[in-house]
Computed example of a mutant assay.
Amino acid sequence: MQNWITTPVTADILRGALDLERTARGVLPHRLPPRARAQNIDGQLAMAESQPSGVRLAFRTRATAVELDAVPTKRSYTGAPPRPDGVYDLLVDGRLHDQAVLPGGDVLVIDVATGAAEHRPGPSGTVRFTGLPGHVKDVEIWLPHNETTELVALRTDAPVEPLPDRGRRVWLHHGSSISHGSDAASPTTTWPALAALEAGAELVNLGLGGSALLDPFTARAMRDVPADLISVKIGINLVNADAMRLRAFTPAVHGFLDTVREGHPDAPLLVVSPIYCRIHEDVPGPTGMDAAGLAEGRLRFQATGDPADRARGKLTLNVVRDELARIVGQRADDDPNLHYLDGRDLYGETDFAELPLPDDLHPDAAAHRRIGERFTALAFGPRGPFA
Rank of each mutant, 00 (worst) to 15 (best):
L14S: 07
V170Q: 10
L229I: 01
E49C: 02
P52I: 01
D342H: 12
A24T: 14
P216K: 01
D335V: 02
L20Q: 10
A366Q: 05
H97S: 12
D282Q: 09
Y340I: 00
L206M: 06
R321D: 12
L269G: 04
G381M: 02
G288F: 11
L338W: 06
N240K: 01
L45E: 11
N240Q: 02
G134V: 01
L246I: 08
A379R: 11
A65W: 06
L194S: 03
E323L: 06
D224M: 01
K314Y: 13
P103F: 09
L299I: 05
V66C: 04
V66K: 03
G293R: 14
L229E: 08
L341K: 13
M289N: 11
P363F: 00
A201E: 00
A292Q: 15
L91S: 03
D309L: 05
L238K: 05
R95T: 14
H280T: 13
P34F: 02
P133C: 06
I41R: 15
A116P: 03
A100W: 00
D342I: 04
D351P: 09
T350Q: 14
G209C: 15
A292M: 15
A38H: 04
I13K: 01
E49K: 03
G293F: 11
P29D: 07
D19P: 09
H30M: 12
H254V: 03
K137F: 03
N318A: 10
A199I: 01
Y340N: 01
P284A: 11
I41V: 14
G384M: 03
G54Q: 08
S179H: 09
D309C: 00
V283I: 14
